[in-house]
């Protein structure tokens, strides 16, 4: 399947986009390869949806160039290779799920088998319901079904799991994994870092229209080397904040201590081993100890803070 791993199916070169005077995308370069899941992360207004819109050919570019399958975005031949799940607030009420999907399938040359679409989206039991009667999560699943029903080579998912409960979210993740294993390339924007962490081969972080980080979820997480140490203890918070290697101490559920007066604490440390040694030296008593590496969420927060600081310094 992956014969052309080194040839991007989509490439973005030096794309800049402004809305009025606001710079939304700033000289963005990006390649997307076959069978790759690329997540675009960033705070609200970072330019995630704008990036997708430019790739779908819905926006003009102030400068730069985008090529999909060697063609310009928005061309009908390109659209026939793509599926998109956009942020849609409502769909035509009085059509059934089956009617919607059958219609969208007709737009494509080799649509996905209807039963397979049903299996991926989990809508089989309600295929004859009008879209009016669907819950938020079911609507999202229908939009996902419409995005994949044409067997697209390239799939755009703009915040696909918004409004889904955890079961629906997990089954969508499963569907994404399967599509990926069939060679579908997927560009995903999300607020849920857990989602990006689990699904992506590569993550880019956008902030103010700039790509501030790019890499695998592991690479990004490894850029911060703090560990979190969690435990239960009857000691006071001051006892832990005196430790030399601890960057930050927080007391979890301070107002609600256990019967013996113990509390949960969370320490952040650049070197968990040294911190633990300090704790044992001082004979502080701990129970229920866990030490965990940084989640993508922590990396995300840290990087955004750094970037904002830098931005503020520059503008001063």
């Amino acid at each position: 399947m992956k014969t052309s791993q080194n040839e991007p199916i989509a490439s973005i070169r030096g794309v800049t986009k402004r809305f009025d005077d606001k710079l939304v995308l700033n000289n963005v370069d990006l390649d997307l390869f076959e069978g790759e899941v690329l997540s675009v992360l960033g705070p609200n207004g970072a330019g995630k949806t704008t990036l997708i819109s430019t790739m779908l050919g819905r926006l003009s570019l102030d400068s730069g160039d985008i090529s999909l399958f060697g063609n310009r975005p928005g061309a009908l031949e390109v659209k026939r290779q793509c599926g998109a799940m956009l942020q849609v607030s409502g769909l035509p009420d009085m059509s059934t799920i089956k009617e919607h999907i059958t219609l969208f399938q007709s737009y494509y040359v080799n649509p996905m088998d209807y039963d397979l679409v049903m299996a991926f989206s989990g809508l089989k039991d309600i295929e004859n319901q009008y879209s009016k009667t669907l819950s938020g999560g079911q609507k999202q699943r229908l939009l996902f079904a419409l995005a994949i029903c044409g067997n697209p080579k390239l799939l755009f998912l703009d915040e696909p799991t918004v409004g889904m409960d955890i079961t629906a979210r997990k089954s969508l993740w499963e569907a994404i994994e399967k599509l990926k294993s069939q060679g579908t390339s997927i560009l995903l924007t999300t607020h849920y870092l857990e989602e990006a962490d689990q699904l992506s081969d590569r993550v880019i972080m956008l902030n103010r229209g700039n790509i501030v980080r790019e890499g695998s979820p592991e690479q990004i997480k490894s850029q911060i080397n703090t560990k979190k140490i969690r435990f239960n203890s009857t000691e006071t918070i001051a006892a832990f904040s005196q430790l030399e290697t601890v960057a930050k101490v927080s007391q979890v559920a301070r107002n609600n201590p256990n019967e013996d007066g113990s509390c949960y604490f969370e320490l952040e440390s650049a070197c968990a081993e040294k911190t633990m040694a300090e704790i044992f030296d001082k004979q502080l008593k701990l129970r229920d100890l866990t030490i965990i590496g940084a989640a993508l969420e922590d990396a995300f927060e840290l990087i955004n803070n750094e970037d904002s600081l830098q931005h503020n310094r520059l503008s001063e």
Partner: peptide, 17 residues
């Protein structure tokens, strides 16, 4: 109405002629 919902946009980026 379809434009207001974003549904028209979805149709537009789909390969519907």
């Amino acid at each position: 109405i379809e434009r207001g919902q974003g549904w028209f946009d979805l149709k537009e980026v789909s390969p519907m002629p």
